[in-house]
Design a protein around this nucleic acid. Structure first.
Lengths: 339, 339
DNA sequence: TTTGCCAATCGTAACGTTACGATTGCCAGC
DNA sequence: GCTGGCAATCGTAACGTTACGATTGGCAAA
């Protein structure tokens, strides 16, 4: 179907003088069909350009071979969304390899995520859902579990429920980042958190505290900021910290926007980043390479994350009884430009 | 289908003591059904949470209500791909409004586009295709036209064939950009073109020449560079131009990477951008806002482009005889940060 | 009462696939 | 020659939907 009238099983069957059943079985190497018949059928199917009709198959088998990823866009600024590109790439590549299609369902922040989910489920035509941007005790998790809809989450929700997820090791990332700054001589390190994502922030906070305590340094909650950091908000926040009597000399940034705000603030104070002030940024796509500023970045391969999400979801669809994938992906620190 | 067993027409029909046919017709306000029956059916369908099964319908009607967008990723650098995010957003939103799903087919540059197209067509399950990154005399156009596969292209191919496309007014953009630089006093303006896309480059070249000639200035082809500009390549190219005895004082950039290279080169030469040297950049997502450099950007609303592509494609699918959409979208110049 | 008409509803087939049980043909064993 | 068993193949039904022609019932006209 879809575009033009493509050959179907019946056409191939009559062409070969076989039944539809035999052709169907032959194409999937059914043991009931004689090997030479299988060869004949495959040759004919190939010649005719036969490809199974997805809808016929889906109707019969209750399987769509389509996965749907729900991707909320920040809209305010696509720079914050750039990590979604390698994510999409990883997801579609992995899906293609397994014979699935990836449907993308982009949403705006104004829309209710729950609402969207219902719409999507009703629209049907998908074997499973990839949800992102998890929040603490995310209501979508019980919602989907109750309805027995296969799904996988990018990010943990902190709920005790048993569900599939792939997450980035935020605790490890924050730990290593803080440790690195301390090793460079920063005795007071600022930590930038995002307000919207509790789990993410909690994990980073744990890593930060662990590294600070391990170094025998005191924890000063003044140095931890958690808000919805735009570039301006980030600039204001770091400016205020730099005005403290005992200002921080290192910063663990939340994301690219946080970095840009911090750079702006340090420039204004006349601090040289990489000498007077050290920054570790979370960067999924090496944008910060282009800033020509000495800093370190903790990067995570989002293509791998995307692939992993798709694989976990497909596993859940094909083997519902298998244990859920719960995969935490490590990042790695890279020096973007040294002093 | 899809996930769980949802109510179907038959269930609702037996529940109401009606036939499947009547229920089906009632749900689409068929004139053959009594108004109060329609009410009853709709109420029951609503209560049961009935939603038509896409595959049953697709099988019967030969329509998938799915569109597929083929998106080649640069991989080397997602920064060059960031415009795809608003594009995706526009496409999915418009598709959703019209009851279509958007399937994304991400490809890597190593893959053969033609090959990909065949795979995709064979996979089926799509009513139409959105192709991007058109090249001169793009072979995909006759390929798809021959097979009568509904498609729309983002970008023109320069071929004389009659097909649907949405394109950005590159000639107008280059014209306005050049004109603006000349108005700011630049008597020699450099133009940066990309090697991969002939149509794009040719259009920009036309706009550049038109503006230069209109101002009565000579055309110097030394100032026009066409290559695969990475940030480094761009920096090298503009550095060489600045070493000329009569260097340019203005630049029309190809994209974000070109801008970053140019900024790096001017910084090294000690030129103040916005005073000694003027830049107009093509920017689809306002990334350049974050550079805090005085420059002008020619922006195109990629959400609009995405919506337009989807609308053109759906039109072609639903009304095959209607004229093809051939839509050129204007950009607009914005001063990002003035001196 | 019969006929004709129209509105309302129903039954059947078909889209292309796969699951499952039925059928065919062949050959060994008696 | 008949039976049992097995390999190979076939036929039918079903998934949920819609198109199309058939059927029903009621009521007005003859």
């Amino acid at each position: 179907m879809a575009f033009n009238s493509r050959p179907n099983l019946r056409q191939i069957a009559t062409e070969l003088g076989l039944s539809v059943t035999t052709v169907s079985r032959a194409l999937k190497d059914g043991p009931e069909v004689r090997p030479d018949t299988i060869q004949r059928v495959k040759a004919a199917a190939n010649a005719a350009g036969y490809v199974p009709n997805l809808h016929g198959r889906a109707l019969r088998m209750g399987l769509t071979r389509t996965l749907t990823a729900i991707l909320p866009m920040e809209t305010r600024d696509y720079l914050s969304d750039i990590a979604k590109l390698p994510l999409i790439e990883g997801m579609t590549l992995a899906a293609r390899e397994r014979g699935f299609n990836l449907s993308v369902f982009s949403t705006t922040p104004e829309e209710d995520p729950q609402e969207n989910l219902s719409t999507l489920i009703q629209t049907g035509g998908s074997d499973g859902i990839i949800i992102t941007r998890m929040v603490s005790e995310d209501p979508r998790i019980p919602f989907l579990l109750e309805r027995k809809i296969p799904f996988i989450a990018f990010g943990r929700s902190g709920s005790a429920l048993d569900y599939s997820f792939v997450d980035v090791d935020n605790e490890g990332i924050a730990f290593e980042a803080t440790q690195m700054l301390i090793a460079r001589g920063c005795r007071r390190v600022a930590l930038q958190l995002l307000s919207r994502d509790d789990q993410y922030s909690a994990a980073r906070m744990r890593g930060y505290i662990k590294a600070t305590e391990q170094a025998g340094l005191p924890i000063d909650l003044q140095l931890v900021g958690q808000e919805d950091f735009t570039m301006e908000a980030s600039e204001g926040w770091i400016s205020r910290l730099l005005d403290l009597p005992d200002p921080p000399t290192g910063l663990v940034c939340a994301n690219e926007l946080g970095l840009l705000g911090a750079l702006s603030a340090t420039r204004r104070k006349g601090l040289a980043v990489g000498r007077d002030f050290h920054i570790v940024v979370r960067d999924s796509t090496h944008i910060c390479r282009y800033l020509s500023v000495p800093l370190a970045a903790h990067t995570v391969d989002m293509v791998v994350v995307g692939r992993s999400l798709v694989e976990g979801l497909i596993q859940q669809i094909t083997e519902p009884e298998a244990p859920r994938m719960q995969h935490v992906i490590e990042g790695k620190i890279e020096i973007i430009a040294s002093l």
